[in-house]
Design a binder for these strands. Sequence first.
DNA 1: TCCTAACTTGGACCTAGTCCAAGTCAACAC
DNA 2: GTGTTGACTTGGACTAGGTCCAAGTTAGGA
Lengths: 138, 138
Amino acid sequence: MSDLLERLRGRGWRLTSQRRAVAEVLEGDHVHLTADEVHARAVARLPEISRATVYNTLGELVSLGEILEVSTDGRAKRYDPNAHQAHQHLVCSGCGTVRDVRPEGDPMAALPSTERFGFTVTGAEITYRGLCPDCSPT
Amino acid sequence: MSDLLERLRGRGWRLTSQRRAVAEVLEGDHVHLTADEVHARAVARLPEISRATVYNTLGELVSLGEILEVSTDGRAKRYDPNAHQAHQHLVCSGCGTVRDVRPEGDPMAALPSTERFGFTVTGAEITYRGLCPDCSPT
DNA sequence: TCCTAACTTGGACCTAGTCCAAGTCAACAC
DNA sequence: GTGTTGACTTGGACTAGGTCCAAGTTAGGA
């Protein structure tokens, strides 16, 4: 993630303590935090950081392609730092936990041109749903 | 759709004019309206219908499995009356139009058990993204 | 060390959706 | 047809998630 900060500097970003705090919160695998959760964890590092800045920073990271925006439930969007490796999501219908998964094959290949209605198809997102081990009935 | 009303009556539903109006609005193919759009069209048929009733009715239809809830953009949820035929969605990144599509194969089969992390996988939703003919550059 | 455009802040505001107490009415019994 | 009643509807208050903005602060180049 510190190379993330370097990349951002290369793109003309000012490296403020707020942006550093947000970037640090987003380190790790299978991280899928809501904006509010990112804010709560950023506050632990930098007590005076505001919600607006967290939203701004997340939005900028998304438009630079450094993180992904995922909406798994129609409620709060989640932010996924694993933007440099193609993957899909497996969501627990019980507790909402999200795992990154890598299905076989290319999902776009499964859509024949007769099913494209003249669209130029650029991507496909798959959300697998199920119950995680903790939420499975016994 | 009128057999929908019959099915609902069979399940003990009262057939009110409000529920009839909502069901009528949801007739057709490739219909993916937001709750507010459903409300606006229902008002055209029944001027005094309230937002709360539209939300209630949509929620009940979803939990009965008669319509599907789709969130294609992390904003307002959309409601899809095509609940009795497996399908996926193709969304225009320009104007937000949604089409129902039927890709080949079973998306769940593409997720090997080593990628399931002990989850019991029950379903998979695919959102294809692209540009519709109207939004494609020239 | 100074300067300034970029960044941050808090609070007002907005949209989508939920909740609730009071009023209405579909459908059943007679 | 009439009466009864519990299911349904209503409007308005409320909540969650997110956006906007004018004023204040600051990173980093000169």
